[in-house]
Nucleic acid binder design. Sequence first.
DNA 1: TTTT
DNA 2: TTTT
Lengths: 161, 161, 161, 161
Amino acid sequence: MARGINKVILVGNLGDDPETKYTQGGMAVTTIRLATTSVRKDRDGNTQERTEWHRVKLFGKLGEIAGEYLRKGRQVYIEGSIRYDKFTGQDGQERYITEIVADEMQMLGGPGGEGAGRGGEYRSERPARAPARQDAAPPRREAPPAKSAAFDDFADDDIPF
Amino acid sequence: MARGINKVILVGNLGDDPETKYTQGGMAVTTIRLATTSVRKDRDGNTQERTEWHRVKLFGKLGEIAGEYLRKGRQVYIEGSIRYDKFTGQDGQERYITEIVADEMQMLGGPGGEGAGRGGEYRSERPARAPARQDAAPPRREAPPAKSAAFDDFADDDIPF
Amino acid sequence: MARGINKVILVGNLGDDPETKYTQGGMAVTTIRLATTSVRKDRDGNTQERTEWHRVKLFGKLGEIAGEYLRKGRQVYIEGSIRYDKFTGQDGQERYITEIVADEMQMLGGPGGEGAGRGGEYRSERPARAPARQDAAPPRREAPPAKSAAFDDFADDDIPF
Amino acid sequence: MARGINKVILVGNLGDDPETKYTQGGMAVTTIRLATTSVRKDRDGNTQERTEWHRVKLFGKLGEIAGEYLRKGRQVYIEGSIRYDKFTGQDGQERYITEIVADEMQMLGGPGGEGAGRGGEYRSERPARAPARQDAAPPRREAPPAKSAAFDDFADDDIPF
DNA sequence: TTTT
DNA sequence: TTTT
């Protein structure tokens, strides 16, 4: 049972094309970089911009869709959670990385969206247990788009409203 | 494929005990009323309060847990979506109702929480197809608490981080 | 001091052009209708769509900007809160209305966006006390776009990070 | 004009008492550490927990209130944005830090809440220009609690609903 | 009434 | 109808 809420909502543009890798179990893991920019006036009245570059990871079906349809420049809505990781680099130094783990994605009508229609929302399917191991699993890009789960929550058709 | 985002986040206190009904298929549907209060100063500098009373519906396992653990006065976090419904009353008049359909619930450490520990987060399981019809399905309150889905999204244990 | 959280996040398309009115004090009040659509499979495996039509109100500068730049079909991000209102119609019947009061708005890159650039985020300025009453205040559409407040929170330039 | 949305919502417990510093301009900057925990089942069916420790910064009035009322163990709601910072350590190494900059805070009914009532929500006032410099500004802890801004957005009392 |  |  989880304790606490860890929720992130981003609307930003991709700084580059997505990168997709696959686990040994064959699950897609796509990484995108998203920019969000805020603006302020400094004490001299000059406009100052600041851009945050978010590192967003998408797993499973969501990762496949992201890898297939997102492109550099595209505007996207992401909902997910923050994850702080620590690892040891090849130089023996400890390093820290912060990532947003997506569980929902919506392509918005931004630039770079040719070839993919203009929008569409996808939710993270909780990936089932990893399938039987397939060494260095091949892409299997033919996977169909995830079906949305949002409305499945009403799956009983005789709800007593 | 869904289009658009419809997301609600509430932290409020229950105005009354929850009410649980069951569909003919045996799915729990729990309704709670949540208060959120905002404050402002009017033009005369007097403090003005305004309370919104939200009607929140929880389905399936989430509805069972809510019915079992939530009580009047308890503070709760809800995440869900807005749903506007129209129906015809017994007097033939059209009526409108706005509800929040919950897909996540977190009991907070507020008052009224005796007997239930102090917290815990639950996510809406996408209810599977309705089970074989059981006329006027009995409660089956012995259902175990839903397992959280939040972390299940990492279900492949050899993720290439 | 407020108690509770009442937060709504929407990404949707306008069903019609915005409507702007002005208070006697000269404050703009713009209403837009936003569609969000979710999809589910029913028990027969057929795809079912459901669209919610949100009524969103934007006040002050935010209302002026919305009235000027938003148009039917345009995709927009809204952040705000839910407000339930009750009033008595001319027939003496009690009526209920649910509205989203916006405090942030971001135009997204959707269709219908000619003449307005492609995006831009705006926050609700807390409107100052109402200006001296101007009977049936004239539009004053020449108002400049609101400056974003997001980054103003760092207004002290010698922050000890 | 900002572009994009960068929004974080947390409900968690403080891992330690808050730390408050002051800028040379006299603005409070309070840092708290918040834990959020998620749970999953691994492939062997064992329950795995994972806790994220968020570093949250609160500025100005919000920082003063946090420093005064929050304590280790207390449960709190935070809304803010993610900020990635890079700096050079004393060893000449580049380091990265991720922080949540709060613009809303709500004390929840969790443990550790003695002496401060049980709740209350506060919003970040956009801090005005820094006051005249006061070298190593003294705390001025007597500052009154920030007034909530949420409802101020309706400041014109003759709104044409 | 939008959108895909 | 809650809560502080």
